[in-house]
């Protein structure tokens, strides 16, 4: 099967890349190349946040059921990554950041990526249903659909708000983890979802500020391309301000303990400070120090999310050991 030729905004460069892609087929990929289709780094974030959602839930889960559920959530996340690589092979080839991925580099064909993505999607949803019930499986199925169809096929190439709405796909894992344990959804799991959802735009816009040419060359309408860097800086600040009440709101739920409260207060103050620094800078200053502040914000955003969820995990452990709560 050959994927339909997609129109791209960047003109002939994109078209040539796409034509070459449909004709390339090395057919001798190694195991690691197929594994790379699943976006292991994204999967590690999925595993971590789903684990936190599961551990923070007030219902104990059999360790084997928990292990299998996390595994199938990870496989489902990986499957959506493979579907993303299948659809986006043409723009991945143009962008420096993604040119070495298995499909654009010619190690794996686009059709193989599609087959891997579809097979693992079905398998992960069915297995999660058997392991944890219909709510968790339904949420996983919706996550895969949202990332592969709503974000990748629709929003990514059509609107500069792509990352805002598409970010929901990456926010589902803690919600699924919580559903594995409780069989449902609650205010706590919705707030964990909201934390990742609100965190995603400033995280990716900071990346876009110092990788702008990549998105421009590929014709992806990132905010930096469509509205310029000044507007992007303003949006980063606005979303960082909106993120803070979500993160602090979790302090008032049953899953927050002293570790989370301390982490949330410190991290949000720090995140806001760097967002203000980025907002105040102009392009001349950013180019002069090679986007140092923007790169720092990007690194800090990774730590921000990891430490918030790490704090929830620590508080859940303290509770289970009877030390707190």
């Amino acid at each position: 099967m050959v994927r339909p030729f997609k129109q791209a905004e960047s003109g002939s460069e994109m078209s040539d890349a796409t034509i070459n892609q449909t004709g390339s087929n090395t057919g001798e990929a190694g195991f690691g190349d197929y594994f790379a289709l699943l976006k292991p780094r994204v999967m590690s974030l999925v595993v971590f946040t789903a684990l936190v959602g599961l551990a923070a839930a007030p219902v104990a889960v059999h360790p084997m059921v928990a292990f299998a559920s996390i595994l199938f959530i990870a496989v489902g996340g990986g499957a959506s990554g493979a579907l993303n690589m299948w659809w986006d092979a043409d723009i991945d080839r143009v962008m420096k950041r993604t040119a070495r991925r298995p499909v654009p580099s010619g190690k794996v064909t686009a059709d193989e990526a599609l087959a891997v993505g579809l097979t693992l999607s079905v398998m992960s949803v069915v297995m999660l249903w058997l392991a944890a019930g219909p709510v968790a499986a339904g949420l996983l199925a919706f996550t895969i659909f949202f990332y592969a169809v709503v974000y990748t096929m629709w929003l990514k190439r059509s609107t500069p708000q792509n990352i805002v709405i598409g970010g929901a796909a990456g926010a589902f894992p803690p919600l699924i983890g919580w559903a594995v344990a409780t069989g449902g959804v609650s205010i706590e799991s919705v707030l964990m979802f909201s934390l990742i959802f609100m965190w995603t735009p400033p995280h990716f816009w900071a990346l876009a500020l110092f990788m702008n040419s990549d998105y421009e060359n590929a014709g992806v309408p990132m905010l930096t391309v469509t509205h310029g860097r000044k507007v992007t800086r303003k949006h980063i600040l606005v979303y960082t301000i909106l993120l803070a009440p979500v993160a602090l709101g979790l302090c008032f739920t049953s899953i927050a303990g002293p570790t989370y409260i301390a982490a949330a207060v410190i991290l949000n103050a720090l995140f806001l400070k760097v967002a203000v620094d980025i907002w105040r800078r102009d392009e001349a200053a950013a180019e002069a120090d090679k986007y140092k502040a923007e790169k720092n914000f990007f690194k800090l955003s990774l730590a921000y999310l990891f430490l918030h969820f790490g704090a929830i995990l620590i508080d859940a452990s303290l509770k289970s050991w009877g030390i707190w709560g």
């Binding site: 839930a57 219902v59 059999h62 059921v65 019930g133 409780t182 069989g183």
Partner: peptide, 8 residues
């Protein structure tokens, strides 16, 4: 049981 804390 399909879901340890759940409904099925």
């Amino acid at each position: 049981q399909m879901n340890p804390g759940g409904n099925m």
